Simulated assay, not measured.
Amino acid sequence: MKKLRFMLLVGFLALVLVGCSNTSASTNEMETYTIIAAHSTAETTSFNEIFQYFKTEIEAKSEGRIKVEIYPSAQLGADRELIEGVQLGDVTMSLHSTAPAVNFVDDVAVFDIPFLFPDKETARATMHVDSPFFEQLAQSQEEKGFKLLGLHDQGFRQLTTNGVKVESPSDLKGVRLRTMENPYHMETWRTLGANPTPLPFNEVYTALQQGTVDGQENPFELIISQRFYEQQDYLTETNHILQAIQIIMNQQFFDTLPEDLQILVEEVMAEAVVVGNEFIDDKEAEYKEIMTNADVEFVEITPDQLATFQESVSNVLDQISQEVDEELLNTLLESVQQ
């Protein structure tokens, strides 16, 4: 009888342990993760398209294990504040221009080389997630606490001005030009003869309206979404710098995800970048039409005029080459040439 009781007790304990084990496994399988995804632009931009695509696909493909909350229009801060938030872990993921990111990762400055990319196709091939350049840049980001998930672009930055038609660097003399808070952008325009005036993005429209600055430079999408064109007479298609956009996640958060979810996050974001790039391409003609209808005069510069701009800012490449990793820069330049 004692032996029977002992065997029954052992059996009962075994069932309890199995039950606990199953419960634990079930709990782990259903563990959920919330991604706070923030950007500083309007909901009509490619930034929001990328995050919306990512949210829809990742929530469906993860079967609810990942939830995404999107905060557009600088609700959680401007670009620099968002980058800080990602580094600290207060914001899980951010999508922003690389220009303010140089304050956190020196190597990101390679995107500030004037006239680096001849066209968007070359840029996108160079920045693709499977490229050697992307892999090296991702390593630089990881050392600072960022997981680089993708590189999008908003097209090239263009110059807009009020009262001054710019066809050559000499036309920029004394022009008060709003720039980003980036030393290489400021040096580019200072070298070209303008008076660079760094201002936060959300202050640009008022500065143009009040005449605090005479012009600004941004890609078509932002000129339209922020309605800068309403306060400008001319747009010179300089294509001076590609508006490279990086998508970063807090590295520590990424490392806590199970391996299958890490792979899923990377795959879905790669798809989302393609969606964002296509959105930009599809909208460009519409953006130009809006500005033309608003009586903005488009100024096309000749190849000889463009060469004058390019020659004038060759010193900026020299400055950047002293601050970034030499191997990374060489990989980038070789990729562009190929």
Rank of each mutant, 00 (worst) to 15 (best):
D233H: 11
I301H: 03
S314F: 04
N250P: 10
E286N: 12
K288R: 15
H185K: 06
P200D: 09
Y287V: 09
H240K: 04
D318S: 08
L264W: 03
I224R: 04
V316W: 04
N277P: 02
E284K: 15
R227N: 13
Y184N: 10
F279C: 02
E300Y: 07
L306N: 07
V299K: 05
T238L: 15
I290M: 13
T238C: 06
I263V: 12
I263P: 00
Q251S: 11
Q310M: 03
N315H: 14
P258R: 12
E311A: 15
N277W: 04
D304G: 00
N182K: 08
A194K: 08
V204Y: 11
A307G: 07
A270Y: 00
L257A: 02
S314N: 11
Q232P: 01
T212N: 09
I280L: 06
I223K: 00
T238E: 03
V273F: 02
E181A: 14
A244F: 05
I280S: 04
M269L: 13
V273A: 06
E187L: 15
Q262D: 03
S225F: 08
Q226I: 02
Y184F: 15
I320K: 06
G211H: 10
Q319Y: 07
D295V: 03
M291Q: 09
E300F: 10
T197P: 01
Y234E: 10
I280C: 05
T191G: 00
T206G: 05
F220N: 07
D281I: 09
E230D: 14
E286D: 15
P200M: 05
M249V: 06
Q319D: 09
E181Q: 12
N202K: 15
S312W: 00
Q246W: 10
N277L: 12
L222W: 05
A207H: 01
E267V: 04
L257W: 05
T191Q: 14
F220P: 00
G276Y: 03
Q246D: 12
D255R: 07
E259L: 04
Q232C: 08
A272C: 12
V273I: 15
E181D: 15
T256L: 13
E286T: 14
V268M: 02
L199R: 06
I245W: 01
E286H: 13
M291W: 09
I247T: 11
T191S: 15
M186A: 14
R190T: 09
E203N: 13
E297C: 02
N202A: 14
V273R: 01
V316S: 08
V296T: 12
T191R: 12
I248W: 01
P303Q: 09
T256W: 11
A207T: 02
A194V: 06
F253G: 00
G276A: 05
R190I: 07
K288Q: 13
Q310P: 00
F254K: 06
E271K: 03
Y205R: 13
Q243S: 14
T206M: 12
D295N: 14
D214E: 14
T292L: 10
T206F: 10
I241G: 00
L235N: 08
V274P: 00
D318H: 04
A270P: 00
L317W: 07
Q216L: 10
P258W: 13
V273W: 00
D214G: 09
K283V: 02
Q209V: 04
P303I: 11
N250R: 06
L264A: 08
L242Y: 05
T206H: 08
Q310S: 01
P258D: 14
L192G: 01
S225M: 10
D295I: 02
E259Y: 00
D304V: 11
F254T: 09
H240Q: 15
N239Q: 10
T256H: 13
